[in-house]
Simulated assay, not measured.
Amino acid sequence: MYQIDVISRTPVYEQIIRQTEEFILKGVLKPGDRMPSVRTLSVELSVNPNTIQKAIAELDRRTLIKSVPGKGSFISDNALELMHIAKRTNYRISKRSL
């Protein structure tokens, strides 16, 4: 699902964020869907778990996902709506912008 370009100048965590946003827009990830765990993504992508955690934290800060302690991270109910607004206004999502 996720693909990392190791030669890209874009940081890995940002690549994960952008791909998650694309998956939400394309309907690959729907509200309520569980995100892969940090450990799973780390092994799958051969990326340091701290990098994955940084991407998850940023997605949570942007309210695109909701982290539930002990359960995992899930796509928020309004993620698609937030992505459409961001795309329409060409604006990055953050809690400050809501």
Score class of each variant (00 low, 15 high):
L98D: 11
I16S: 15
Y2T: 07
K71I: 04
Q15L: 08
K54E: 05
E22S: 13
S67P: 02
Y13L: 06
I17C: 06
Y2C: 03
R88V: 12
N48V: 04
E44H: 08
P49T: 04
I75S: 02
I93D: 11
Q3D: 00
I17R: 02
V68C: 02
V12S: 05
T10V: 12
N50R: 07
G27S: 13
K87F: 03
E14K: 12
T20E: 00
Q19Y: 10
D77Y: 15
E14I: 10
T20Y: 02
S42I: 05
R92P: 11
G32D: 03
A86L: 06
A57N: 13
S94W: 07
L80V: 06
I56N: 02
T63H: 00
I85H: 12
D33Q: 05
I52N: 05
Q3F: 09
R62K: 07
P49C: 05
N78A: 15
G70D: 00
L41I: 07
R61T: 04
M1Y: 00
I7Y: 03
K30G: 04
T51M: 02
A57T: 10
I85K: 09
S97A: 14
A55I: 08
G32I: 03
L80M: 08
R92G: 05
I75P: 00
R62G: 01
V38R: 08
R62S: 05
E14V: 12
P36C: 09
I75K: 01
I16K: 14
T10I: 15
Y13F: 13
L98N: 14
S97W: 15
L80S: 07
V38I: 14
V43N: 02
P49Q: 03
S46D: 05
E81V: 14
G32K: 04
P31D: 08
R18F: 11
V68N: 00
M35F: 10
L45P: 02
P11L: 01
K66E: 14
V47Q: 01
H84V: 12
D33T: 11
T10A: 07
A57E: 01
S97R: 15
R39D: 00
R92D: 03
N48W: 10
Q53R: 11
G72Y: 02
K30Q: 14
E81D: 09
A55Y: 03
S67C: 09
T20A: 08
V12F: 06
S8M: 13
S76L: 08
S42V: 04
G27P: 12
D60Q: 12
K95I: 13
D77I: 15
I24A: 05
G72R: 03
A86N: 03
R96D: 12
Q3N: 06
S42L: 10
V47M: 01
Y2F: 14
V68Y: 13
A55M: 07
G27V: 12
R61L: 10
P36Q: 08
